[in-house]
Design a protein around this nucleic acid. Structure first.
Lengths: 235, 235
DNA sequence: CGTGTGATTGACGCCTGTCAACGTCTGTGG
DNA sequence: CCACAGACGTTGACAGGCGTCAATCACACG
């Protein structure tokens, strides 16, 4: 973690990526610029750990952060991959609780750190911002409930197909149709809630069914409707 | 659903059950009294359904409400049992979205209905209330994430034991040590995310292991530490 | 070139879902 | 008061999905 010369401007983030700060006044944005500190983080870095106190939250300008909980015998359950425009860690600040997930950089990132007190100040002085933040929490809550239903009712095969569809929506494909997020088989397994070997076997089946193509960690999606059907995804 | 003569006073709820309205001013409470309408609901009634718009939220004065999502082939996944002091439906109001769960009365209930506009008004005019509500959403989010981890990593046996422990915490035991919530085996299965038959078999095993006693739907907990151990519950 | 991490494949078996049959209880209507 | 329907609970048989263990391969890195 090192301070960088080219700190991103908040206003740019707000207009391009980020919804949460959309309703700040000019003054508040100026204040935000002063309060925040922006850093690069290398792949593999732990931002914060489950059970530790954090005193601020992060706004992702670039890169990917993996949020996970540690379950029985150290097995990780991935809650979400956060990307450009996402804010993470705000829950702990608002609730004044320890972090309930661990945040690990899985793709070199540029993150802005904003002190918790300033978040509280914003919530208390700008009701539009408070609404926006509340809606974010509610959105995550809705998604969590959907995930609970899926994980409780769907087979591993269905869940894996579904996750691939969601990853495609969240991280999109490059020009070759390859998922723009590079995950180990183990990470895929830790999202789906299964064993690494099962993911490997199922991916290879999907490949046999001409739904995807595999080259190392690159996953090329060649039949999205087919994947959605296998995963019982209806949007 | 019928209007009742003895509408509960908000102030009583606030002092005894309910955290969410704790920071309202006297004036706001008076306004709340005017805005709300209170009704009895019989067991089996549907309050609202997943996918429908709701224009207000409910505050539970008495009774139990089951919140569930409907998954593949109509199988229900229970998200939560709401009881005295809980508020439900606020997420849809804040996000201005359709309900993402169905709410069904499973124990005769007294509920206060509060129009959505008033919730928004409160959020926008009372920042303490906004904070409180945000913390509620964050709390539910944390619990949802914990549930995801459990359901993804634990066996059905562990999950069932865990659910019994949680039900004990939430609904407590009567003088005979019996869980104060009466659920069908199917409802237990729909919480745990398994088949009804599996619940029956496992409950009967727990009985054999002297963890619980069974009399119809009554579940008497006779070895809580044992249950916690089986469920890998550490608090 | 050795070491370590991740990917793959095969063998094996248990947990758990499914199907089917039957028992139990409750409320309703005759 | 009895018969019946319908919902719920229970038990058994069975198969297969998926987790676990172990061995091997592939690849990157110091």
């Amino acid at each position: 973690m090192k301070n960088i010369p080219s700190t991103p401007k908040c206003q740019e983030c707000i207009t391009s990526n980020n919804a949460i700060f959309a309703h700040l006044t000019k003054d508040e944005i100026a204040r935000l610029e002063l309060e925040k500190s922006c850093n690069h983080h290398k792949r593999g870095t732990l931002l914060y750990q489950e059970g530790n106190r954090i005193n601020g939250f992060y706004c992702i300008n670039k890169g990917i952060v993996k949020l996970y909980k540690t379950g029985i015998e150290g097995k990780e359950q991935i809650i979400k991959f956060a990307k450009k425009g996402d804010v993470i860690g705000y829950r702990s600040i608002l609730s004044n609780e320890m972090a309930c997930t661990t945040a690990k950089i899985i793709e070199d990132s540029t993150l802005c750190y904003i002190p918790g007190e300033f978040l509280i100040t914003l919530v208390k002085t700008n009701t539009n911002f408070a609404m926006e933040l509340m809606q974010l929490a509610c959105k995550e809550l809705k998604e969590a409930n959907n995930f609970i239903t899926d994980i409780a009712q769907k087979s591993v095969r269905e869940r894996l197909a579904e996750i691939l569809v969601y990853l495609k929506e969240d991280f999109d494909l490059d020009n070759d149709g390859v998922l723009q997020i590079s995950l180990t088989r183990e990470e895929l397994a830790n999202m789906v809630g299964t064993a690494t070997e099962s993911v490997i076997r199922l991916l290879s089946e999907f490949k046999g069914d001409k739904l995807i193509e595999l080259t190392g960690r690159k996953i090329k999606i060649i039949n999205l409707p087919g994947l959605m059907k296998v995963g019982n995804v209806y949007n």
